[in-house]
Every structure is written in C-alpha cells, then in structure tokens.
Amino acid sequence: MRPMIDADEASDLRDAVRLDVRWTLGGPSREADYAAGHLPGAVRLDFDRDVCGPVGAVGGRHPLPEPEALQAVLRAAGIDDGTPVLVYDDGEGMAAARTWWTLRWAGLEHVQVLQGGIKAWTGAGFPLETQTPEPKPGNVTVSPGHLPVLDAESAADWARDRELVDVRAPERYRGEMEPVDPVAGHVPGAINLFLGDDDLSDPDRLRERYAPHPEAAYYCGSGVGAARTALAVTAAGLPTPPVYIGSWSDWVSRGRDVATGEK
C-alpha cells in the first residue's frame, strides 16, 4: 500500500476513518481550526496528547504513547482491526507523518497520509464540514513493534557501525544554534541530510535522495521530522527505515556526549 494519496484518491476512500491531526510546534491546540472546518466525518486527535506519550525527565519531547492509551484513542475514533485510516494535517506532513508512523508501529496496516493535507483537499474543490462526528467505538488492537525503533544506546551503535542521519537544519546539526532543546549539536558520528529538501510529491526524487543510504536510521529533534523522513523513504518505494524516536531531545536528556561542527 502506498503511504500517501492525493485528494481525489482520498475522496474515494468511503470506508476510511479520517483523522485530523493538525498541530503547531509549541503553539496552541488546533481545536478551533477543526471546529471551523474539517474533512467530512474526520475525527480530531490532539497530536501531543493522543498520538504521543506524556513527557518525562528523559525520553524526549514526543515519546511513544503507551499501547493501552493509544488503543483507547483509536477505538474512540471508531477504528476496527482492518479499517483503512486516512491521516491529514495542514500539508507540511509533520504531524500526519508521525501519526502514520505511530499507527504503523502499532500494527495498523491500512494507514495513508493525505498528500498536501487539508489545503490540497480544499484546493481540489472538496468540501469541509463543521459537525463533530460521534463514531461507534471500534475494536482495533494495538500491537506495538511493527516498525524498527532505536533508543539512545542503539542510536550510538548505529552511528558507529552503520549510518545515523540527522535531518534537522544544518545549523542545528552543527551546533551553531538550538531553538528548542537545552544543548546544541548532534549525535557523534551522525551525518546530516536536511528534511526540508524533501518533496513528498516526487517519489523519483525521493528515491534518488535516499537510495544511496540503504542502512540509514534517522533522527531529528523529537522524532517528528524523522518520522516524516521515514514516510519520504517509504513513499520512494524503499523499506521503512529505523527511527530514533526520542531523537535529540532524548539524547541530551540522558547527558550523552555531543558533537559539533561538520562531523
């Protein structure tokens, strides 16, 4: 199954549960935007609360959710085992990709991202609605572990033995600035491929970019951008790569060694 579909294809998914996961990093809840208009029948998930786990002293800013908590969220959204799921955000693909990744990790097989998000939907002339749906509770079973995940120790090993890729902006990788986390720099041994260079609508370009990195694992600031990169790699027709889901925010919370500069 292709991980991304366009608005015309999405409109034909009659049996899919639609999940609105619009989100702004460090910003307010997007409940008001959902209330103002969403894809017909779409269920609102709060990205920080419903898709990610609670933040602790270690683990990063967007840790994995507890399986039981995620299962309750997905059942409340009306998802059964085998139900197709369509995920969308504003169009930048960050929250939608991490939600796609989390659901795939949790064992859901039929999960796709709306390419271009809600902007592509309205741009194609499809309507929005303001009614809040009341789905019948589903029976989906969350079974974690279906995608490869790294922790800090295995990320360090990966950087030493294979290829660990930091997808943050080059200046953050080099440690020249850090707008979010308390320590600047990168995991020692990691290389940098900035995710901002990805065009998720061009699988050929994505394949050209990522095929030379067949053993790469990816990380970012808190596992959101890295999940978007995993989506990009998958959209290119390549195997979904490992993600260090705690990413830089987890790494520095554990007091691990830090590298700066180009290497």
Rank of each mutant, 00 (worst) to 15 (best):
Y88H: 08
E92A: 07
E92K: 08
M94N: 08
A97N: 07
A97L: 07
R98I: 12
T99H: 00
T99Q: 07
W105Y: 11
W105P: 09
W105Q: 12
A106F: 06
L108E: 08
L108S: 07
L108Q: 00
V111G: 02
V111M: 07
V113T: 05
V113N: 14
L114F: 03
Q115A: 05
Q115W: 00
G116W: 00
G116M: 06
G117A: 10
I118R: 04
K119C: 02
W121V: 04
W121S: 00
G123M: 00
A124P: 05
A124G: 06
G125S: 08
F126K: 13
E129H: 05
E129N: 08
T130W: 06
Q131H: 15
Q131C: 11
P133F: 01
P133G: 09
K136V: 03
P137H: 14
N139F: 13
V140T: 11
V140F: 10
H146P: 13
P148Y: 11
L150T: 10
A152S: 15
E153A: 15
A155T: 10
D157P: 04
D161C: 01
D161R: 01
E163A: 08
L164C: 02
V167K: 01
V167F: 08
R168I: 12
R168C: 13
P170E: 07
R172K: 06
Y173S: 04
R174G: 06
R174N: 04
R174M: 12
G175C: 11
E176L: 03
M177V: 15
E178T: 02
E178F: 06
E178W: 02
V180E: 15
D181Q: 03
P182S: 10
V183I: 09
G185Q: 06
G185I: 04
P188S: 07
P188D: 03
A190I: 04
A190E: 14
I191W: 02
N192E: 05
N192V: 13
N192M: 07
F194N: 08
F194G: 04
G196P: 00
D197I: 09
D198G: 11
D199H: 08
D199Y: 06
S201G: 14
S201F: 01
S201D: 15
D202F: 10
D204E: 15
L206A: 01
R207V: 05
E208L: 07
R209D: 03
A211C: 06
P212I: 14
H213V: 01
